[in-house]
Design a protein around this nucleic acid. Structure first.
Lengths: 198, 198
DNA sequence: ATCATTTCTTATCCTAGGTTAACGAACTTT
DNA sequence: AAAGTTCGTTAACCTAGGATAAGAAATGAT
C-alpha cells in the first residue's frame, strides 16, 4: 500500500497539514491517473493552465518558447513533485509556459479550481496551498538569484548540485536551455572546466 | 480616517479576506510605526529576516551584495506595498538579501512569526498569507522570465512599463542593478535607443 | 559664485557567450 | 554492415555587455 499512488499524494499533502478522512474522500474523485509519454506537451502555451500533476514516475519540465523557436527551461520535476503552470493555475490566465514530459511519465492530475473548493470546507486545504506556494516561492527566489547574480559557469555548477541526480537523465541541450545558454556554449564551458580541473 | 495608517493596512489585507473586528484588535498591537531614513539598511544580509513592513510613504528596495561589492536589486517597493526578505520570513533562515530605504520612508512593521499565530485562530489570516504569497510568486515568475529570456534592452523596456511611475525616482545605477547590468552599460543602451527613436 | 561630490555619458579595449558550420561518436533503421 | 539520425565537440567569427578611464552635467556645500 506504500506505493498506492493516491496514498503517496496524500502523504505529500500531509507533510503540510493532516487531512481528515472525510475530506480526503471528498477530494479523491477529483484525481485522475494519467500516463504521459516522452516528448508529449502536456500544457501548451496560450491554453488553460488549471491542471496540476503529481509526478509518480518520470521526468517533466516547464519551459518557455521564444518567437524564434528557442526554448528556455524554467524547471525540471521528478517523481514525488508537483508539475503545473503554477502562475496560470493561480491567476486563471492562460499559460505563458509549456509543460512537457522529458521521459515517459505517470501522474495523478487534478484541477486547481477543484482543489480550491476545499478552502471553504476545511482549513487543511488552505494550509496545504499556502505552504506549497511558499516553497515554490523560495525555490524561484533561488533561481532568480542565480539568473541575476551568477555567470553561466557558476549557474552550471549550481545546477549540478541542485539537480545532481538528474544530470545524467538530461541531454545537454536541455541543461543549456535551463541555464539560459546555447548547447554549444555549454559544451565549451564543460571543456574549459575539464581542462582547469587538472 | 482614510489616511489612518492602520486602516490602510487593514484595507490592504481585506482585499484578500475580511477580518473580523475582534481579530483585528488582536493583531493591531503587533504593529509598530517606524520611520526609516534614506540610505538606511533596514534588513542586513545574514541577519534575521522575520520583519515585514507595510510601506506608507517612500521607496525601498531588496538587493543582493556580491563578494566584490557589486549589488543586484531584486525589486523596488513603493507606498501601499509590503517590504520584506520574504523567503527569510517564510523559512526562518537568515536573510540572503538586504533591504534598504531608497527614499525617506514611513512604515508599519510586524513580525511574520507573530502574524502566523493568527493561522490557528481564524481562517482569514491564512487566506491572506496564501493570496499574498501567490501574488509574490506570480510577480517573481515574471521576473524570472525576463532574466531568463530577455536581453538587457528588452528588460529595460519591461522595467519601464512595470515601474513607469518609479523611473524618475531612481538613479541610473539603481536601475542598472535591477537589470543586472552596469550603469555604464545602461547609459549605452539609452543612447542607442535614443538614436533609434531619433 | 566657487569648489567639491556625485552621477551620467562616451570612448577604448576586452571577455563571455551567440552563430554557424564542420566533424566525430553514439544511436537507429534497414 | 551501411546509411541515416541525433548529439556533443571544436573552431572561426561576431555581438552584447563588462572594465577602466576621462569628460560633462548636475547637485551640494561653503
Amino acid at each position: 500500500m506504500m506505493d498506492d499512488p493516491f496514498q503517496a499524494l496524500r502523504k505529500m499533502f500531509e507533510r503540510y497539514a493532516p487531512i481528515p478522512d472525510a475530506e480526503w474522500e471528498l477530494f479523491r474523485p477529483a484525481l485522475r491517473p494519467e500516463k504521459i509519454e516522452k516528448g508529449k506537451v502536456w500544457i501548451e502555451i496560450g491554453q488553460d493552465g488549471d491542471a496540476i500533476a503529481f509526478l509518480l514516475k518520470g521526468l517533466m519540465r516547464n519551459y518557455y518558447v521564444m518567437a524564434d523557436g528557442n526554448e528556455y527551461t524554467r524547471a525540471f520535476r521528478a517523481a514525488g513533485q508537483f508539475v503545473a503552470s503554477y502562475s496560470s493555475a493561480l491567476s486563471g490566465e492562460v499559460s505563458q509556459c509549456a509543460v512537457e514530459a522529458v521521459e515517459d511519465c505517470e501522474v495523478l492530475t487534478f484541477s486547481y479550481r477543484e482543489f480550491k473548493r476545499g478552502f471553504a470546507r476545511h482549513a487543511c486545504w488552505e494550509r496545504i496551498a499556502r505552504v506549497i506556494g511558499e516553497e515554490m516561492y523560495i525555490e524561484y527566489q533561488k533561481r532568480e538569484y542565480e539568473l541575476l547574480c551568477m555567470d553561466a559557469l557558476t549557474r552550471y555548477e549550481a545546477f549540478q548540485s541542485r539537480y545532481s541526480s538528474l544530470h545524467d537523465r538530461l541531454s545537454q541541450s536541455l541543461i543549456a536551455s535551463y541555464l539560459g545558454i546555447t548547447p554549444v556554449s555549454l559544451s565549451r564551458l564543460r571543456g574549459k572546466r575539464a581542462r582547469k580541473d587538472f
